[in-house]
């Protein structure tokens, strides 16, 4: 176990597109990060799934590196962050939002497979490092950020929240 009181910085910052796909057969959602100049929109079969392009957003991905012990926490399993406004009484995230104080904001770290058909989500190590990183940079003592994995949502695709994403910036209206 590390005894370092980590001081995190963002590292490996990379701009690209968050591409969201859906499978019409199972209703599953999947997303991936692409650094291609134009977001890929191909449909393809993968096992029982047939993934169709649903949309894309300009996005950024990064890892966290401790300036003191040089430990790097990879966040390649995180596709985005969502400020939760969930009011579902059956949802643990909604419960956390309700029980948190006025100055606490709950952010959901979204993984690639928000339907969790693979059982995977953003790692515990990643969630802990994200929480530490965003809280260490707050000014003053009023505000607090809580980061939770999207597997904590009862149904993340229906969860109420505001995803931090640059939607529509490459489209004409």
């Amino acid at each position: 176990m590390s005894t370092c009181s980590h001081r995190w910085s963002m590292t490996d910052i990379c701009s690209g597109y968050l591409v969201v796909e859906g499978c019409p057969h199972c209703g599953g959602r999947s997303s991936f990060f692409s650094t291609a100049p134009v977001p890929p929109i191909d449909e393809y079969r993968e096992g029982a799934h047939y993934w169709e392009y649903l949309g894309s957003f300009q996005a950024v991905r990064f890892n966290l590196r401790c300036d003191q012990c040089e430990r790097v926490v990879l966040l390649d399993d995180m596709m985005g962050l969502m400020l939760s406004t969930c009011d579902d009484p059956a949802c643990k995230v909604g419960g956390l939002v309700r029980s948190s104080g006025r100055h606490t904001s709950v952010y959901v770290a979204l993984c690639a497979d928000t339907t969790h058909t693979t059982g995977k989500c953003v790692s515990d190590e990643g969630i802990a490092a994200l929480s530490e990183y965003f809280n260490q940079n707050l000014k003053g003592g009023r505000k607090r950020i809580v980061v939770v994995p999207c597997k904590m949502c009862s149904r993340v695709d229906n969860c109420k929240g505001i995803v931090i994403a640059d939607a529509g910036l490459t489209e004409f209206y």
């Binding site: 400020l83 904001s105 940079n137 931090i164």
Partner: peptide, 24 residues
């Protein structure tokens, strides 16, 4: 953006508030 910055922007949507709140 850093905590304590003044942000100049054209964007007026909710996602902006979620982002600026996160980095204070």
């Amino acid at each position: 953006a850093k905590a304590g910055n003044v942000l100049l922007t054209l964007q007026t949507h909710k996602s902006l508030i979620a982002a600026v709140n996160l980095v204070d």
